[in-house]
Amino acid sequence: MPPNDAWPDAGTVPVADIGPDTCLDPVGRDTDTAHGTDSEDTEDSEDTLDLRLPDEFLALIAEEGTEADPGRSPGASTGMARAGLLTANSDDLLDGVADWGPIATPAGEFCLVPVHVDRDLALIGGWMNDPAVAAFWHLAGSQAATEDHLRAQLTGDGRTVPCLGVLEGTPMSYWEIYRADLDPLARHYPARPHDTGIHLLIGAVADRGRGVGSTLLRAVTDLVLDRRPACARVVAEPDLRNTPSVAAFLSAGFRFSAEVDLPAKRAALMVRDRSRRDLM
């Protein structure tokens, strides 16, 4: 699983390269009007749970099993339809990231724009070759590695949506919004249905060290919680060695939940709870 905690230096490209209709919808809705009672707050902030696997996850397992054994009954694949999932290259599992629209932040208007490889590979590949990024993402070198990484998500089942972060018309960061409860990460912590995860890197040197990362993290998690009503919390797993990144998550309203041993790193499990979003 990729990291979510690099803060590199790289160039930017003008918004014209993203498209004329990008980020032109009205600023986001205020849909989170109820944050629960004190007892609900306690429940939402617990990190242990007797968890029933979500229907989407069971359907995905069934679908993968059918593909591996064509002789199986096709009944498993119909579980995808019953769960309301779309075919490959869909972001329905994340409630239409492409339609979330912009959000006003103290740093300016910001929006997530789903990646198009032909348009965005050179920019993202350049960021991946910054030493500050390469130390955590491990995608330095030729753009082929970055292209493979992006296409694997774009042609997958919709559990992850890679995006450019566009601030005041300028692409300046890279984000991956993903279903943490359907991700391998769920094997390493007590996941809950619809947990939503974030990976990111900040691409422009001018945006590092002055709080922009924390500002945008808070904005994106607000977008997730507003646009995904079934999601009770947003999670992240920055490398414990990356102190500035962990500090940025804390400043953005996340709480430190646990240290987690992942296949490629020891991570800080960071959580932002819907019930506490106005308190932290």
Results as ranks from 00 to 15, higher is better:
173 S>F: 01
141 G>Y: 00
180 A>M: 11
222 D>W: 08
200 L>T: 02
142 S>A: 11
59 A>R: 02
250 L>P: 10
112 L>S: 05
131 P>L: 01
78 T>H: 12
1 M>I: 03
11 G>Q: 04
39 S>E: 04
55 D>W: 07
224 V>G: 08
123 L>R: 01
229 P>V: 02
84 G>I: 13
12 T>D: 09
264 A>S: 03
81 A>Q: 13
55 D>Q: 08
270 M>N: 02
177 I>G: 10
170 T>S: 04
45 S>H: 01
137 W>V: 01
136 F>V: 07
26 P>K: 10
36 G>C: 13
95 D>W: 08
129 N>Q: 03
158 G>E: 02
35 H>M: 12
212 V>P: 13
198 I>K: 03
199 H>F: 01
26 P>Y: 05
41 D>C: 07
63 E>S: 14
249 F>D: 05
82 R>E: 10
201 L>Q: 00
172 M>P: 07
244 P>V: 03
25 D>C: 03
154 L>S: 11
127 W>R: 00
276 R>Q: 15
150 L>A: 09
75 G>D: 11
17 D>P: 13
183 D>H: 11
205 V>T: 03
249 F>Q: 03
97 V>K: 01
202 I>A: 00
99 D>C: 11
121 L>C: 13
33 T>C: 12
80 M>N: 12
187 R>N: 12
248 A>E: 05
175 W>K: 00
84 G>L: 08
86 L>V: 03
271 V>A: 07
257 S>V: 09
86 L>P: 05
203 G>W: 00
234 V>A: 15
124 I>C: 01
77 S>D: 09
35 H>T: 13
119 R>D: 05
182 L>T: 04
207 D>M: 10
253 G>N: 09
114 P>W: 07
191 A>D: 04
110 F>L: 11
64 E>D: 15
253 G>R: 06
94 L>E: 07
253 G>A: 04
139 L>V: 00
67 E>L: 06
61 I>K: 12
219 A>Y: 06
154 L>C: 14
214 S>E: 15
167 L>G: 05
92 D>G: 08
69 D>S: 03
181 D>C: 15
20 P>W: 03
234 V>W: 06
250 L>E: 15
209 G>Y: 06
55 D>T: 13
195 D>C: 08
36 G>P: 11
105 T>M: 00
24 L>R: 15
232 A>K: 06
156 G>I: 05
138 H>G: 10
34 A>N: 06
67 E>V: 09
67 E>D: 11
96 G>H: 15
103 I>S: 13
